[in-house]
């Protein structure tokens, strides 16, 4: 297994290729341009299809088409571009197609700027487009995880026939770290896609659609979607816990933000302050169970949610705790990132 120094964006691209992605369509936007550039050469070299689309809307609809035809397909963009893709993501969810969408977040609203942010959490975890649906959302916190999670995302997308999103930020996309690249392309779990469009030779025609006009049909379909989402919520919660056994103050942060929070926890521990960290890895499904368990068994003084936004994930923490524990918040967005000092001061004042 070789170790290489690459950026988060490149790690995502290589991770996708190693996960058996054979179709990529995208449109340039900062801060994820290394990803599309990497795909344009490396994916094509390996016999995959790369298309620089005319827009983010076209790109996501190309992913819809490639996925309908049965291949592992993905697109990537950053916040304003992801807003444009919401139409396609809703159709992908509605047609129950597997696909992977990468959002390397920048600050908003509107054109905002190109600094890292986490202000697309609501959009990512609530559906984002029209209708009652969810994407499975994974939040890597290192360049290694950026590589590793692509495999997880494609596997989950295929398993549940559902869009999966990688939610990173500009800092993670741009920074370089050593990454262990495991060559796994020939070990891809082949899920049989009997629903895919391949031409109707030897079988009845397949139809990929999200349109249900007959009375009762859409409601029945939506109930099957909800059943699937309940199953995902039960089985796919992922998080990393740090010092949770005796923590009196539990910090909650994901992605890049969690790395700063982790440093703060270690400093606080060195000063005798019993703090811990929950780092949600799946943002949807939100790792509810650990919060519920800790609130009952440990009765911590407080949960402190730290985000590069003005308070989005904190709503999930409050929802899951149902008032059973104190929840505090620290957040900045638009260029600013909560610093280790700010976190430590906030904890000391609790």
């Amino acid at each position: 297994m070789k170790k290489v120094l690459i950026s988060g964006n490149e790690a995502i691209a290589e991770g996708a290729i190693q996960a058996g992605c054979t179709f990529y369509a995208g449109y340039p936007i900062t801060p994820q341009n290394e990803l599309i550039a990497y795909m344009s050469s490396h994916l094509q070299d390996k016999g995959g299809v790369f298309i620089q689309a005319e827009s983010e809307i076209a790109a996501i609809n190309m992913v819809y088409g490639a996925s309908a035809a049965g291949v592992r397909a993905m697109t990537s963009s950053s916040s304003p571009g992801i807003s444009l893709k919401q139409e396609g993501i809703s159709y992908i969810a509605g047609a129950e197609l597997p696909a992977v969408i990468v959002n390397i977040m920048r600050a908003g609203p509107g054109l905002g700027n190109i600094w890292p942010a986490q202000s697309d959490y609501f959009q990512a975890t609530r559906g984002g487009g029209n209708g009652d649906y969810h994407c499975i959302v994974l939040a890597p916190a290192s360049v290694q995880e950026s590589f590793d999670f692509m495999r997880v995302a494609f596997d989950l997308a295929d398993k549940y026939r559902n869009p999966a999103m990688i939610l990173g930020d500009g800092m993670l996309g741009q920074m370089m770290e050593p990454v262990k690249i495991s060559n796994t392309r020939n070990k891809i779990s082949k899920i049989k896609k009997s629903w895919a469009l391949t031409g109707c030779k030897g079988r009845k025609p397949n139809i990929i659609k999200s349109f249900y006009m007959r009375e009762g049909d859409l409601e029945r379909f939506n109930l099957t979607l909800q059943k699937k989402y309940n199953q995902i919520q039960e089985k796919e919660q992922r998080f990393e816990g740090l010092f949770l056994d005796d923590a009196e103050v539990i910090l909650v942060a994901y992605g890049s933000m969690a790395r700063i929070a982790k440093s703060a926890v270690k400093f606080l521990r060195s000063k005798g302050k019993k703090s811990g960290l929950i780092r949600p890895i799946t943002l949807w499904p939100f790792p509810k169970d650990i919060f519920k368990r800790l609130a009952i068994s440990h009765k911590p003084l407080a949960f402190l949610v730290i985000e590069m936004s003005y308070g989005q994930m904190v709503e999930d923490v409050r929802l899951v705790l149902e008032g059973k524990a104190r929840v505090e918040f620290l957040g900045r967005s638009g260029g600013g990132i909560p610093t280790e000092d700010e976190i430590i001061k906030k904890v000391m004042r609790l």
Partner: peptide, 13 residues
């Protein structure tokens, strides 16, 4: 075999 496409996106699909 047929696929639906979002309004206007048939040629991307």
């Amino acid at each position: 075999d047929c696929s639906e496409a979002a309004h206007g996106r048939a040629l991307a699909v």
